[in-house]
Amino acid sequence: MHLVHPATLAVLLFCVGLYGVLARRNTVLVLMSVELMLAAVSLNLVAFDVWLADELHSGQVFTLFLIALAAAEIGIGLAIVLLVYRRRGTVALDRLRALRDGPGADEAAEAAGPTDAAARPTAIDAARGQETTTP
């Protein structure tokens, strides 16, 4: 088999994933695009391992490691997304601006709510107000 075929497929798959990461708004969809990028890298590793006929099977072993790492990453990522959803009531990336820098940072931080326990009621009120505007 021509090595260009799997290599080009991996490149194109990676760029599709790149588009998804940059263009999607829902955090779970961004995680899906990251999975696509990881899968593209796995294809590259397998193709080059088979091409070089490596004695130690490095490429395929790394692919196994990559699949396990992807499982760990998706577990942690979804746990964080669920926590954010419970706290903020949204998973849209452009609404999560608590750590935003630059102009409008103070207002964004206020909308996101302070984290200390004393100010918790105001944070809940802010989140309530935000939630009613969310469709």
């Binding site: 021509h2 090595l3 260009v4 799997p6 391992d49 088979v50 091409w51």
Partner: peptide, 13 residues
């Protein structure tokens, strides 16, 4: 990689 071919005659996985 335009001159590179993978030899699939012996399975390597």
């Amino acid at each position: 990689f335009r001159t590179t071919w993978i030899d699939l005659s012996t399975p390597h996985g």
